[in-house]
Amino acid sequence: MNTSSTRRTFLTQAALLPLFVAGGVSPAFAAFTRPRRVGGSHLRTSLNAFSFLELLNANAKDPTQGIDLFGVCDFCAKTGFDAVDLTGYFFPGYPLAPEDSYLYRLKRHAFNLGLGISGTGVRNDFVAADPAIRAEGVARLKTWIEVAAKLGAPTVRAFADSQSPFKNWQQAAQNAPRETVENWLADALRECAEHAKKYGVIIAVQNHGDFINTGAQHLSLLQRVDHEACAALVDTGKYLTADPYADIALVAPYAVNWQIKETTGSATHTPKTDMTKLVGIIRRSGYRGYVPIETLAMGRPGYDPSIETTKMLAELRAGLAATESITP
């Protein structure tokens, strides 16, 4: 047994215990299985295609404008990313599955460029009181689990929050108690995870600043799901607390994918992400895998994703270099 490592883990959990208590969540996460990892931290860069939202939407309306997913892959290769995260919204025919011929052509294109495909993602609403809305989300996730398997993507991002036309989870849930809503979420995610297990895919549940805006809430949901094919996607800009880095540290050991944002609140007035601090937390958690970045327009005039993602990649690389000696 590595005594120092065990002591460090104990001290970390003890320091974060107040988060569970403050969030009204049971701290009994010892039985909550985290991904098994060996060999220390190993991180690879990726870009979430959502960074090119406006250009991808323009291309969907007029193929002579903007950029398509093949172009995003080209950009990633030219810029030096290790992988690309291909958001489902930008595939032809979404929310339906694209033709297999399209998927395999895109998969081969990424492979020829030396890019991994770190994940994909869809929209779903599992906090809605209407069972039909939740069922629609389950069917969509199951469809895109199969799409992910064909692409070779290890994860499919799922939301744990309300979607349009609802403004927040309380409205979507018609003011049902939080525990009731968490049960709706857990039941839907567990059904999707069971389907994902058949295809070797993992449901990556994203915090999005609505039903889940703390690390304790994130883990509470995952514990209630309690399925090996369901884990966390950590959105570093959507833990709406006084110290989001503490929430990130709490959930990082259970992460299978990330969305690293420019700021800790996904808005220009919120603090800029301290990349060295963030990557240090990720390394200490023992996480191995892709760390996708995602930039957003955030109301900035003249927002250019090519410029902003390149700048952010340089910051991420600096953070990776500065923390290289950190071990779990």
Rank of each mutant, 00 (worst) to 15 (best):
residue 112 N to E: 15
residue 164 S to E: 13
residue 78 K to Q: 15
residue 58 A to F: 05
residue 182 E to V: 02
residue 181 V to P: 01
residue 85 D to G: 04
residue 94 Y to N: 10
residue 68 D to H: 08
residue 167 K to H: 13
residue 122 V to N: 09
residue 72 V to L: 07
residue 64 T to N: 06
residue 77 A to E: 13
residue 47 L to H: 08
residue 159 F to D: 04
residue 152 G to W: 13
residue 180 T to H: 09
residue 171 Q to C: 00
residue 153 A to L: 09
residue 49 A to R: 08
residue 149 A to C: 05
residue 178 R to G: 00
residue 154 P to G: 10
residue 131 P to S: 04
residue 145 I to H: 12
residue 49 A to G: 11
residue 164 S to N: 13
residue 115 L to P: 04
residue 60 A to M: 14
residue 84 V to E: 06
residue 76 C to Q: 10
residue 180 T to P: 01
residue 91 F to R: 13
residue 121 G to I: 03
residue 160 A to H: 03
residue 117 I to Y: 10
residue 101 S to I: 05
residue 155 T to S: 05
residue 172 A to P: 01
residue 104 Y to W: 14
residue 127 V to N: 01
residue 98 P to R: 11
residue 124 N to D: 08
residue 98 P to G: 07
residue 76 C to P: 03
residue 76 C to S: 10
residue 60 A to I: 04
residue 140 R to W: 04
residue 51 S to Y: 06
residue 135 A to Y: 05
residue 44 R to K: 14
residue 144 W to I: 05
residue 70 F to E: 11
residue 69 L to F: 13
residue 177 P to W: 10
residue 142 K to C: 11
residue 92 P to Y: 12
residue 83 A to S: 15
residue 132 A to Y: 06
residue 178 R to T: 03
residue 152 G to Y: 13
residue 118 S to W: 09
residue 183 N to Q: 15
residue 172 A to D: 04
residue 142 K to A: 02
residue 128 A to W: 00
residue 137 G to Q: 05
residue 51 S to A: 09
residue 176 A to S: 12
residue 42 H to E: 14
residue 147 V to I: 13
residue 145 I to Y: 10
